[in-house]
Every structure is written in C-alpha cells, then in structure tokens.
Amino acid sequence: MRDALRAAHLYYMQDLTMDAIASELSTSRSSVSRLLTYARESGLVDIRIRSPLEMSTRWEREIVRRFGVSAHVVPVPGGSSDVDRQERVARGAARILNQYFDSNMSMGVAWGSTMSAISRHLSPKETHNSDIVQLNGAGNTHTTGIDYASEILRRFAESYSARLQQFPVPAFFDSPETRRHLWQERSMRRVLDMQARLDIALFGVGSPFADIPSHVYIGGYLDPDDYQSLSEQNVVGDVATVFFRADGSTEGIALNARATGPDFEVLRRIPRRVCVVSGLSKLPGLLGALAAQLVTDLIIDEGSARALLETTVAPVESAPEPASELSGRVRE
C-alpha cells in the first residue's frame, strides 16, 4: 500500500512517467503499472471526470436548480437491463461515498436491494472512530432479518474499519404501543440517539411499482391488510420502511406508527442525506421523497434523471394497485 501511494502521488500529482517512477522506486515499469492499478481498485485514488459538454453534467446542474439537491448522474446505456442499471449506479455510489465518509463520522444505512448492491462495490477506506448505524429493523414473522441486514451493514463497517451499531428490532411492531414502550428502554435509546446524531444517512427509495422489487415488499414484511391500508392511503413509496404519499406527507398512514425507521423529522436533521435510485419505476417514490425534503444528495442513472427533469406535473399520476393485485404480484 505504501508503494502504491507513492507511485500514485508521483504519477497523478507530479506527472512523472512510469519509467521515471520505476527508476525512483527501483522497480520495473510493469510493477509501477500494477501499483497504479491497485491504487485505483482499492480506492486510494479516485478519478473523476467533469465535462461541461456531457449531457449528464447538464442534468446535474438542472436537478440542483429544480430540486435544490446535489446530483450525481451515472452514465448507463439505454438498453441496459434493470439489474445492470442498478449495479452501475451502485458502483458509482460506492465511489462517491468515499468522498463523503471519513474518520470521526457516523453513517446510517437502511437495508434493501440498492444498499446490498452498493455494499458489494465498496472500496476499502481506512477511517478512525467512525460508526455504521442501522437505520431500521429487519425482522418479520418469517425471519429475524439479521442475516440479510447484518451482511449489508458488515460490508460497510469492514470497508471503512468502522464500528457496527445494529438495531435488533422487527421492521414493524404488531402495535404502536409495543414500539412506544420499547423505545423507552435504554438499550434502544442508545441506538435511537445515535441515529439522531448521524453525519450521513444513506438510503434508497422503496416502491411497490419497482421492476426490481424492493425487499420490504417481497420479504414477508407486509400482509394483505397492510397492502390494503397502503393502497387506501395513496402510498407511493418508503424510505427506511417509513411510508409516504406523492406529496411527501406521512400523516395518517397507519403502518408508520408501527415502523422502526426514523421519523422524517429526525431524518431531515441529518446534515447529508444520500438517496440512491435507479430505474424509471422508482420515479414516483423519488418525487415523493424530494417533496418530503428527505434528500440532500441524489445518485441516479441517466434515464431516470432525464425522466425526473421532464416531470412537470404532479409527482405521480396513478394510485397504487389494489391490495389484492399488488400483494398477489409481489408473491409471484
């Protein structure tokens, strides 16, 4: 690592040729090439391209102007599958996170298919006195959720040499009273207090309409009555298992009283809130999250960015499917 750092500094900062670096390090030119490759792949070097001529850069500026959030548009070919699109956006998000997260910081992470993809592409970055905090519980009536959520959070913690703070509660309690009582326990208050003091929150947008189904809608977390309730209350998506409508409102959504994700008032106080989205089917949920002012930094694919900027009407034009149809489609 020391040799890679030295080679990278000489090559990128001092503009030395590989032959000159090989001479200074008393090694071969091929070894210098391998050191530079290692520096890039391990995250020691972060290469960014900012061209004012590229459409993605223009879209980034327009998203800032229209929605007041910093934007990073990830180039993705138009014919890409939804899985490939998500993987490319996740890879871009993983690189960008290294610029945001550092020593003496805490980052809250919401589990889900997007976060799982990001965790697989993280580049190691050594930090000190840092924490990765689980934003919402993952258990349900079929599983504790520990294996799924902890694997995602473990990758984040190991990549940043950070402490892992898990949140061992279900995604939804059976009753609001259970949540209220448990939230008074000191062990739970410790995690809740950490969530309230986060430097960064990282999340995707869950959607019942997504082409890659959000984990909360296919993992056994919702029953038919829940789907019926979400449909009647015109829910378009969720962030960390807290549901919202197209206008960003959450009032009167019964399931939120049992949810373990952070209230939006708490989330909005976190200085940097990074939302990662890929695919047009997530657009209604993204517009709702923007309306709720949950996002400060948006990482999004080109096609979705273009569609977002072309949206000049209400954030969503159709109500959720009836509960029977939606829950049946999810089970399939």
Rank of each mutant, 00 (worst) to 15 (best):
E87T: 07
T178N: 11
T311S: 06
I200C: 06
F203R: 03
R91A: 15
G303E: 07
G328N: 11
R273M: 07
E41R: 03
E321P: 00
S30V: 15
P262A: 07
S119Y: 13
D174V: 05
P271C: 08
R155G: 04
F244H: 09
L308P: 01
G279F: 10
S26I: 05
V64I: 14
I49D: 00
W183Y: 15
M188R: 06
L36D: 06
Q166G: 07
E158L: 14
F156K: 10
G303V: 04
P168C: 03
T296A: 01
G252W: 12
S207C: 10
P52D: 04
T260L: 10
E321Y: 11
A93E: 10
A157E: 08
L326F: 13
I200Y: 13
S161D: 06
G288I: 15
V45Q: 01
V313P: 00
G137R: 06
Y12Q: 02
R65G: 01
I299A: 04
S229V: 10
L283N: 04
R58Y: 12
I132T: 06
S81R: 06
N256Q: 06
G112L: 12
P262Y: 03
R269G: 10
V73T: 09
Y38R: 14
N98W: 00
A305N: 02
G204H: 04
I218D: 06
S113P: 09
V295D: 01
V277S: 03
G248W: 14
A171I: 06
R306H: 10
A196D: 14
N129G: 05
F173T: 04
Y11E: 05
I146L: 07
